[in-house]
Amino acid sequence: MLELKQVSKTYRVGNQDFPALKNISLTIEENAFMSFVGPSGSGKTTLLNLMGGLDRPTSGQVLFDGAQLESMNRSELAQIRKQHIGFIFQSHNLLPVYSVYENVLFPLLLNHLKEQDARERVMALVEKVGLTEQANKKPAELSGGQCQRVAIARALIKRPKLVLADEPTANLDTENSFRILELMQDLNEQYGAAFVFSTHDQRVTQFINREVRLEDGAVLWDKAKNGNGELE
């Protein structure tokens, strides 16, 4: 579904080039539930941004369902994100003026659905993430874990083909992390969306079925889970 072909990203800092990603080639399956791991600065966020068309590679190609992202203009990229990609950020980045319900509704409105047609669907997902009682609260009135669950619902409501989650558990305690990962696992199975995380949280490992290790902008290894639930 998503293919990276020899993708490199170089940042210019002062008058020096800094390679954040070096020649990365990867294929992401339709139903992937995988994670990029690696130390801070290894290029995880940069990679996710490239995959989501939020940023452009310095060289190489990103193919989304066979379409080349680098040949698209800003507006076309926005269309792709609007329709097919769900972002979840380390800090939830909810819209502060909107209630839980409205935050989850927002992507549907962007995709030109009418509120009355979307209402049930939104409330069903809000229920699934366990926030029915909080539906009319503003983000400021919620805990970090609750906010992150809203962010997940917001990313999933439009049934995207690809969910990109940049350290979704970084701000959460163990219990909340597990709940969120279980939730995403559920949704992955139910909706068939591909989930790609970035994390340096070891707790994530037990949930995923593929782990790609990045170091200094390069893939160190790429392991898939075998039948015994072990990575190899």
């Binding site: 980045n93 927002f106 992507p107």
Partner: peptide, 12 residues
Amino acid sequence: KEIGTLLALGVE
């Protein structure tokens, strides 16, 4: 951040 979020959500 809010602007970035809107852009990531696909708002032009």
